[in-house]
Every structure is written in C-alpha cells, then in structure tokens.
C-alpha cells in the first residue's frame, strides 16, 4: 500500500478539505487524520458505523501523594517550570509540568511519583473492509510524534486486502508531528495559500518533506484571492522542480459542504471540480510502483 500525505506549512489553508475530497474521489479503504492537536477530518469523513476508542498516554507527569507530602517545599524550589503549587499538601499543575522527574528525585519522603498522563484518545472508525484512524489530544497536552505514529500504525494494522494507497491528513507546521506524519510517505501533496506568509511557510515544509525522499507535489487553495502570489508559487515550484498540480478557487460552497458534514467532492461546486482535477493529475504519481 502506497501512502499519500497531505500537508500544509500552517493551519487554515484547506488541507483537510482537500484530504476529505481525495478520500471520496479515490474511494480508498484506508485513511487517517494525523492532525492530533485539532483533528477535523472526522467532521466530513463520516458514515463509519463502527467505532473503537483507546486512551493515549503521554510522557508521565509528576504526581504528589497528599498522604505522604510533608510540605517541605523542596520540589517547589527545584522545579524550573513553575509546575508545583505550594500548599498543604503541595500539588502539581499538569499544564506546566514537563515530566522531567527532578521533583521525584529530590522528594525526601518519596511522596512524588511519575504517573502516566492520559493525554488523549485514539479512535478507529470502521465499515466493511474500510478503516479511518484518528486521535485527539486533550486540551493543553502539546504535540506528539508518538501519537501520530500510533494513528498511522492503527490504520495499517487493520487494513485488509490489497489497497493501492492510503490518504493521510497531516498536521500543520514543520514540527515533530509533521515529521512523524512524513515517515513512510510515498507522495506528499502540499496545500499552499497564496499569501506573503504562505510562501515562506511553503518553502519550509518543502525543505522538511524533501529530507524524507518523498515525491512532493503542490497545489494552491483559494488561488484567486491573490493571483499574483499564486503565480509566485507556480514559479517557485518550477524553479525547485516540484510538481505543480493545480489551483482550487475560493468557494463559498466549500463552507456549505463542511457545514453539511460532507466533502467538496460530494456536492456540485467549483472547489470540488478543481479538487477532482488536481486528483486526476496527481493519481499517476500516487499509484506508480517505483520511486
């Protein structure tokens, strides 16, 4: 099974809108949402009758046993993250604790232990032979490459039979979750935005994606908002030898589709037609067997 990953340099470019359309157009039986900080794909990729939830535990955080704490203040004075709340007994602010374990090291009465931190949930949606893997971090849990890897692993583990390729919605930015998303990707489609900041975001994500040896393609969403910047992106792709697969226009009907809980490929609309054209051009690259 080959893997198509859809990315963007920052949030809000329409990555999930494009991913939803591609899942519908390809009728792929394997897809995943790796934007674990703010997953949205499940809002338009529906119609999976079965659902399987599993908790996700992140780096353990400090936990003070109130029965043992003698309020000596040693942990409070040693913590560099302002994560200990003084009092009788002392408490840990889960939001500030980074899980270093120094407080547990210095506690003279052994009142502090590092406890697994329930940081989110992983969900596997299923219908006949098809699977959609997603997850959501709890508020303030930060980002995690591990959770992204788990989401992809869960998708791969239940895939049955021969599927040409999976569609993976990545997370925005260039940080750790993006790197975990890129691991194992064969083709990366970057959804860019025609703005001054969008172009610098694009350059950074291209640089990151290339390090993984995936084939990189670029499309511009809301291209007509700023035709001059769209041309600039096209020229950049040409210069860099990147496959420019086309433009998707700004389309009020895209909002209508999302709000109905369907993808732009499910209704008749300009953005849906353009996404279908982008898909048609990219398909030979996604399905080709050799690198």
């Amino acid at each position: 099974m080959r893997q198509l990953v859809i990315l963007s340099g920052k949030g809000g470019t329409g990555k999930t809108t494009v991913a939803g359309a591609f899942i519908r157009l390809s009728e792929t039986r394997a897809c995943a949402d790796c934007d674990v900080d703010a997953p949205n794909l499940h809002l338009v990729n529906v119609a999976y009758p079965l659902r399987d939830d599993e908790p996700y535990y992140a780096l353990p955080l400090a936990d003070i046993d109130p029965a043992l704490c003698v309020s000596c203040g040693e942990c409070h004075s040693i913590c560099r993250f302002d994560a200990i709340i003084p009092g009788g007994p002392y408490r840990v602010n889960d939001h500030s604790c980074e899980g270093c374990g120094v407080c547990a090291l210095v506690c003279s009465v052994g009142a502090i232990h590092m406890k697994p931190h329930h940081a989110g949930n992983m969900t596997l949606y299923k219908k006949e032979n098809a699977v959609f893997s997603t997850a959501e971090l709890k508020m303030g849990s930060g980002t995690s490459g591990l959770l992204v890897s788990q989401v992809k692993k869960r998708m791969n583990a239940v895939v049955e039979g021969d599927i040409p390729f999976s569609v993976v919605d990545g997370s925005p930015g260039i940080g750790c979750p993006v790197i975990a998303t890129l691991s194992g990707a064969d083709v990366t489609l970057i959804v860019a935005e025609p703005s001054l900041s969008g172009i610098s975001d694009l350059e950074r994500i291209v640089k990151t994606a290339r390090g993984f040896g995936t084939q990189v393609a670029v499309c511009v969403n809301k291209a007509d908002i700023n035709p001059a910047r769209t041309r600039q992106i096209q020229e950049y792709c040409k210069r860099e030898g990147l496959f420019f697969v086309g433009c998707i226009p700004y389309d009020p009907l895209a909002v209508v589709a999302v709000n109905r809980g369907v993808t732009i490929a499910d209704i008749q609309c300009p953005s849906g037609n353009a996404a279908a054209e982008v898909y048609r051009r990219l398909l030979p690259v996604i399905t080709q067997r050799s690198h």
Partner: peptide, 20 residues
C-alpha cells in the same frame, strides 16, 4: 474562528482552556 464545523470544533478546544 471561522464559520464552519471545523471552526466550531477548534473554538471549543480553546474555549475550554480559557474556562480552566
């Protein structure tokens, strides 16, 4: 926030933080 289901979902997440 944007006026979409996506926007509302993400709004909820930040609103929770502010309530905290």
């Amino acid at each position: 926030a944007e006026p979409t289901r996506f926007g509302a979902h993400n709004l909820n997440m930040v609103h929770e933080l502010l309530r905290l």
